[in-house]
Structure formats: structure tokens, C-alpha cells
Design a protein around this nucleic acid. Sequence first.
DNA 1: TAGAACCTTGGAGTGCACTCCAAGCAAGCA
DNA 2: TGCTTGCTTGGAGTGCACTCCAAGGTTCTA
Lengths: 155, 155
Amino acid sequence: MTVMETTPAPAPAKVDVCAAAPESHPRPNGQDRYTISEVVAFTGLTAHTLRWYERIGLMPDVDRSHTGQRRYSNHDLDWLAFVNKLRLTGMPVAHMVRYAELVRLGEETFAERQELLESTRRDVLNRMAELQDTLAVLDHKINFYAGTRPAPERD
Amino acid sequence: MTVMETTPAPAPAKVDVCAAAPESHPRPNGQDRYTISEVVAFTGLTAHTLRWYERIGLMPDVDRSHTGQRRYSNHDLDWLAFVNKLRLTGMPVAHMVRYAELVRLGEETFAERQELLESTRRDVLNRMAELQDTLAVLDHKINFYAGTRPAPERD
DNA sequence: TAGAACCTTGGAGTGCACTCCAAGCAAGCA
DNA sequence: TGCTTGCTTGGAGTGCACTCCAAGGTTCTA
């Protein structure tokens, strides 16, 4: 809970969020002021969901045009791609919001972020093991069904 | 929809459901008349969920005591174990109900059952690929966080 | 034979993750 | 300048998969 003094090291802001793999962006940095409908097209999320993410604190600090419309950056796109990955693991949104909060709080939260991701990692491995298990059962049954019939389209 | 004449072949009922792997049952066949709370203990599902499965057609034909209380068989336990595996894949309950319906309809539905399971199999493989992808991202970030700190409990 | 613990039902409620709505302002084009 | 399309908000609604409730009957142990 106690916030330490900011470290004097001149680390660039990007380091804090932990740069993602070098994904290509629709537009180069500097021209990256995407409207919400562009982000919809790039991410597959709906505009509703994007606004909702912002409301619950999962998508912080989206820039605005002078009239108040959202303008997303490449950095925002990277964040959304990461969130999407977490979402696919079945991670509850509340945990993602917690992670987003930790990112906002700065470098003091590196340890907790690491723990959170490691816990997620364990969940992912468990899910993969479950799926592998299920795959075996499915294959068993599929083979059974395939074997009981005269192989419709063979040859 | 049309129901064919019952096949004269004296196939045991078990064949139709496609026997699962030889899982050990709490009690041998013949003494397998489990109460709902026993099934809760074995499966980890709640009694609410078991009754709900029955109501929606996912858990058909559970035997009853002479006073109307449910008595589950080893066969029912096998079915629940399979349903649980499907559930873990994220398969919608409506699809599982469809599969249960096909089982009820008999051997004429083998082909459709196979298709349904093959489609599920593809979903499982896709999910596993997504998870593998996510795992790479998680590892990348975890390594980043681990590298920025003085390795707390090393040595 | 009493009392506790368990089981029954239909229907209503819950939590999650969106999803939609109405009313109004903004942006781009003929 | 008008018209169409897009964007804004808070709040209400949706769909899924459970989850719980009340009121009453059943089973088991002492």
C-alpha cells in the first residue's frame, strides 16, 4: 500500500507497460489516432465493449479529440491485443482490471504484476491439460463412431 | 424425426452410448443406485445443477426410488463425466443437449454425433492453439518483470 | 417414534460479460 | 447548408449457466 519514492533512473515510459512483441500497426507512430470504429475493425471487439472496458477501468487514458471523441493510439492497440489474449484464457475481467490498475500505479507494482501473470500462467497450463484430456476422450468416441459405419466417403 | 423400427440385433444398450474409458466406479454394477448427494460428492457438481441438467434434457432417464427420489447409476456417472469434459471445452450447453438428444434417438444418429464431436474437436484444437499463443506472451512478460528486479529469493 | 438430515418441485434470482437504447452532438461530403 | 453517417453518455436489457427459495415429503439414526 505504501508508495515508495519514484526511482531516479530515467527509464522510458514504455518499459513500464512491458513492450509486446513487435506487432505491425495499421499506421506508424505519430499518425496513430484511430477512431473507435477503426479500432472495432482492427480488434474485432464492438464499440460497446470498447467503451465498457474504459468505464470499468480496463482501458485507461484513451486520448480524445478536441470535441471529446476517442482517439486510440498504437499503444492502446497493443494493450487491447494483450487484454484479448488474457480474455481467451478465461481470466475474469476483474483480474484484468486489477492488472491495469497495477500498470497505472507504476514500477513499484512489478512484483505483484509478475505474480498475477504467473498465476494466470498456471491456469493456462491447467486448462491446456484439461483440453488435452478431453481431446483423448473425443478421439476415442469419434473413432468408435467412425468404426461402426461403412466409412461414407472413403476412396 | 422419423423413428425406424428397432433393429433386431441383440446389441447391448451400452454400445449406443459408446463406452467410456474404464473408469472405476464407487460401487460395482448392480449396487449402483446413488442418491443425488452421493453424485454431488463424486462429480463436484451441485445438486441444483444435476436437477437442472435433467430439466433441460442433458441428463435423461435418471431412475427413481419408489417414492420418487433420484437414484443414479454407474452409467449416469459416466455420462456426467463426459458432459463435464465437454463443459470444460467451453461447449455451449445447448450443443450438449443436442448430443444427448441424438443418443436418445439411437444408432441412426451415429453420423451426426460423429460430426458434432469432430466440430468440438476442432474447437478444442483452436482453443489450445490460442492458449499456447497466450502462454508465449505471458512468458515474455513474466521474464521481463523477473529481469527488472533483483531476483528476490534467489539462493 | 422423534428429530435431524435429505430430497422433491416450479419458479424466481444471481453474476458475468457484454449489448442495446435514446437523445443529442460531430464529421464529412454535395 | 443540408444530409447522412458516426460518436457521445448513463442506464437499462440480454443470454448463459447456473443458484437459490419455500413448502412439503422421505430416510436414517437413537
